[in-house]
Computed example of a mutant assay.
Amino acid sequence: MVHVDALPPSGSPSVISVGDVETEAGVCIPDVHLCVYAFYDAATPLNERPVLLIEHALTGDGNVADWWPEMIGPGKPLDTERFLILCANVLGGCQGSTGPSSRHPDGKAWGSRFPAISIRDTVTAEKALMDVLGIDRIHAVIGASMGGARALEWTLMYPEIIVSALPIAVSARASAWQIGMQSSQIRFIEADPHWQGGDYYDSDSSPAEGMGQARRIAHLTYRGELEIDERFGTDPQHNENPYGPYRSSSERFAVESYLDRQADKLKERFDAGSYVVLTDALNRHDVGRGRGGMNAALAKSTVPTMVAGVDTDILYPWHQQEHLSRNLGNFVGLSQITSPTGHDGFLIETRQMGLIVQKFLRKADQLAQDPLD
């Protein structure tokens, strides 16, 4: 039974202790806290509501209403009048959950002492959170990108409590191309002289420049090539001239200015240490590790799973979602978002995404009529 008194008010966060978490690699993180948001409206008792667990992407957080506003609310696909919707900031994050910027038991920041974590470790922490909240049945787990990786791991680690799952824009494991792109981002941050080996928290500086360079690379993988070219082409930034006799970083193409703005926005709201830890966790994503390989692991999946992806995604290409559809042991459907915007299509194409979620939840309702084994 849901411990209603432990839930925050709808739309608000609560930082909850989930106890010690031992990582897949054998390191104990003591007294882990996760920052969780709950969303619900109307008078239906919370104990009578199906629980939806939403998993955010790499630089997201638990506030679904902030990054998926068209999807959540009364009468919307994630209907707050019907469901109890939960979303927790991931272990290793920087929005209230335990991560590198958090206080170590000795009072200083964890910094470089924060262990490497895997996607499985983040799910272990979330399961501990569900235990604290008294939740032993999850109607559906829905996540995209890194959230999709967590959704897949939920179905393999704790199938006994998951009724259904919708992983979006993700793969069964990190590809070599993804690891190459993501490790290059990590290298930019670590090469920043203000990184200080990850122990910059008690200094007056942070590796903001390295973080910005990492974001520039990442953002290009989040968007579609055709969309970027159509928006910017070879146009100069207003009042700048990249065609002058000498190159200057202050004379930019329009696309450079766009990437600079994206870098600046992330530097203001996200911690570089968390970016490194979570990007490394994405590099470690592999549902087949220790399970006989990814196809064998997928084949053993018993949780009914629908898969969705974006046709122009270059970070998690459509063929990776097709691979999931061919190999999942309890596959119930494949849906494609058509968009020029690439990977971020799951955030931008809200009408298409909403239709997919509604179709998925109708299927979840049918599945929930049969008791879990």
Rank of each mutant, 00 (worst) to 15 (best):
V18H: 04
D20G: 03
C35H: 07
Y37C: 12
F39L: 10
A43P: 13
E55Q: 15
G73I: 15
D79P: 06
G93Y: 03
G111S: 02
G111N: 01
F114C: 05
T122M: 11
E126C: 06
V132Q: 09
G134P: 14
V141M: 02
V141R: 00
I142K: 00
A151E: 06
L152W: 05
E153T: 08
P159G: 04
I161A: 08
I162V: 14
L166N: 02
I168R: 00
S171M: 10
S171Q: 10
A174E: 03
W177V: 12
F188Y: 14
P193A: 05
H194I: 09
D199C: 05
A214E: 03
A214N: 03
I217D: 13
L220H: 08
E227Q: 14
I228D: 12
H238Y: 13
E240K: 09
Y243V: 13
R261K: 11
D264W: 06
K265I: 15
A272R: 02
T279Y: 03
T279C: 07
N283G: 14
D286N: 13
V287K: 02
G292R: 01
G293L: 02
M294H: 13
V310I: 08
T312H: 01
D313T: 00
Q320K: 05
Q321R: 01
G333T: 04
G345R: 00
L347K: 04
M353P: 00
P371F: 11
